[in-house]
């Protein structure tokens, strides 16, 4: 769990996960295109995310596709959110989104 928090504690890495959330299964090149980071930096961040199991990869010929793997985040949520609190937490998040979008 330490590794997951460390991996998430970086703006650039969260931006990479956001990019995969918007479009799953991107190549390194595609991920670089959307972000103001060097290819080397993106590559390094992806390795850290993969080590933390927040990214899963799939080989397509010579290309490597990157997928957001939210399973470790589900484990964190389950540790501190009980079944019947989940609905309330979701309702509060929805309310926040609604108020902030007005």
């Amino acid at each position: 769990m330490d590794q997951v928090f460390k991996a998430l504690a970086d703006d650039s890495r969260r931006a990479l996960l956001d990019s995969l959330m918007a479009q799953n299964g991107q190549t390194l090149l595609e991920l670089c295109a959307g972000l103001d980071m060097s290819r080397q930096a993106v590559s390094k961040h992806l390795a850290i995310l993969e080590d933390a199991n927040l990214i899963a990869t799939h080989k397509r010929g010579r290309e490597k596709l990157h997928y957001l793997n939210p399973v470790p985040i589900a484990e964190i949520a389950d540790r501190w959110i009980r079944k019947f609190e989940r609905g309330k937490a979701d309702a509060l998040i929805d309310l926040k989104k609604q108020l902030e979008s007005d």
Partner: peptide, 11 residues
Amino acid sequence: SDPAFIYTIYI
């Protein structure tokens, strides 16, 4: 086709 999702977990 390429996967829509890949989920991995270490047990």
